[in-house]
Design a protein around this nucleic acid. Structure first.
Lengths: 234, 234
DNA sequence: CCGGCCTCTCAGGGAGTTTTCAGGGGATGC
DNA sequence: GCATCCCCTGAAAACTCCCTGAGAGGCCGG
């Protein structure tokens, strides 16, 4: 995905399912993060002590220690590394609650990569030394605020559904880059989605109606290739 | 979540239960306080002498000295640091009673973070040099007074139950920020609450009926995301 | 001990959102 | 010009999430 120049934050991704781990590390690397991995709780603890990551992406269910244990061990060591947990959908787990207190966050499986990277960015933003890193993306006269979930086109506020919002954010993070429908599906939709490409066309259509009715048009179709967000050629 | 920029007051949190200590220090830090911790009465005394905190959050039940002893030792040393005590629910202890006289306060376990931070703010406000820091929150034509517990909408007095009041205060402290139901649950409800999200929906519904019946509507639902207190789109 | 307020749960209904499907139209290539 | 492929979009089905009324249970004050 995005060479969104993530200022090279160091991540530690902890996940025992090799498929998901591969998916995560590949796409987070591509998003510009410096990624290390671990497949068990104990390995995670030592890796974290050694590499001192800026943030840990941590599956709650691990073969040996569970995610909370891992964090407890790390924090006993005095490190206050922020965490984004990965949890099962139905996890009404007591411990999950309380996570939003210390600036940590969580994402429920199955998630979309857009969702996960957005949470990671948000947590890093909050814990960044310089107080308020901007949570606002802009492109031409388009503005999207990740914190307030507000979108403006040419100064006018636009209401978007969750999927529309994620799609637009993905386009904006990758402005001027052509994105295939498969690519969009892989990033914006949950990784277990098994529908067809047409849904991307549908959502592009919705987005155009809501944010691309004024000149100049910003969302362009490249027939047989994909879509791209860009200003028309000069 | 509250980057409510707490003017960086220095706190000393004294609590022997590691889970609660972690909960407290993480969230108070995140609320903008400069937090130091201690897990015993004697450690608390020396930490307080060394760091000179603006306020001490002090569990009454400690392994060595009890909270009152700690305070006695400190005050013998001439320091007049304000305190917020943490006590068990049933502590009908006489000593607790006298606390509110000296400008100190107490919160009974299990508490909500909203409750605790509100008490801390109130005590700091009272002991602040500049006499009366404002205890009134306002947003649009909504007014909430933390001291008198009065709420007005468009100049008209509104009666709220305790939970409704805490929820509204939390929304107002975080105006224009989107709050998920999980986040609201974490902050407004006691930390041992084990119910589901629906209770937040219920209380939002109560609040709307009491304070959001007039135009413009201020409490908005962001489907699939959370709630936000804000003025309608420009 | 009774009544009233408050908290919390449950479930039905409704509104908004996601997904699918199919027809039509424009672009592309022959 | 014609056939084909790809994309666009309206419509509707399927689904999810949210709102709210009703009521149980607890707590407090009378």
């Amino acid at each position: 995905m995005a060479a969104t120049t993530q200022t090279e934050a160091r991540l530690l991704v902890v996940e025992d399912d090799p498929n998901i781990l591969e998916l995560l590390s590949a796409s987070l690397r591509f998003a510009g993060f410096d990624v290390a991995t671990a497949t068990s709780g104990s390995a995670a603890v030592s890796a974290a002590k050694e590499r001192r990551p800026d943030l840990v992406v941590l599956d709650v269910m691990l073969p040996d220690l569970d995610g909370f244990e891992v964090i407890r061990l790390l924090r006993e060591g005095g490190t206050r590394t922020p965490v984004v947990f990965l949890t099962a959908r139905d996890a009404t787990d007591d411990k999950i609650r309380g996570l939003t207190l210390g600036g940590d966050d969580y994402v429920t499986k199955p998630f979309s990569l857009e969702e996960l990277t957005a949470r990671i960015r948000a947590v890093l933003r909050r814990t960044a030394t310089g107080e308020h890193a901007p949570s606002r993306l802009t492109f031409a006269d388009l503005e999207l605020d990740e914190e307030t979930h507000e979108v403006h086109r040419a100064g006018k506020r636009v209401q978007l559904s969750p999927t529309e919002f994620k799609l637009l954010r993905y386009l904006m993070l990758n402005a001027n880059r052509v994105l295939s429908k498969a690519q969009i599906l892989d990033h914006v939709w949950n990784y277990d989605f098994r529908g067809d490409d047409n849904i991307v066309e549908s959502y592009i259509s919705y987005l155009r109606r809501k944010v691309d009715t004024t000149q100049p048009r910003l969302i362009h179709t490249l027939r047989g290739v994909g879509y791209v967000l860009r200003k028309p050629a000069a």
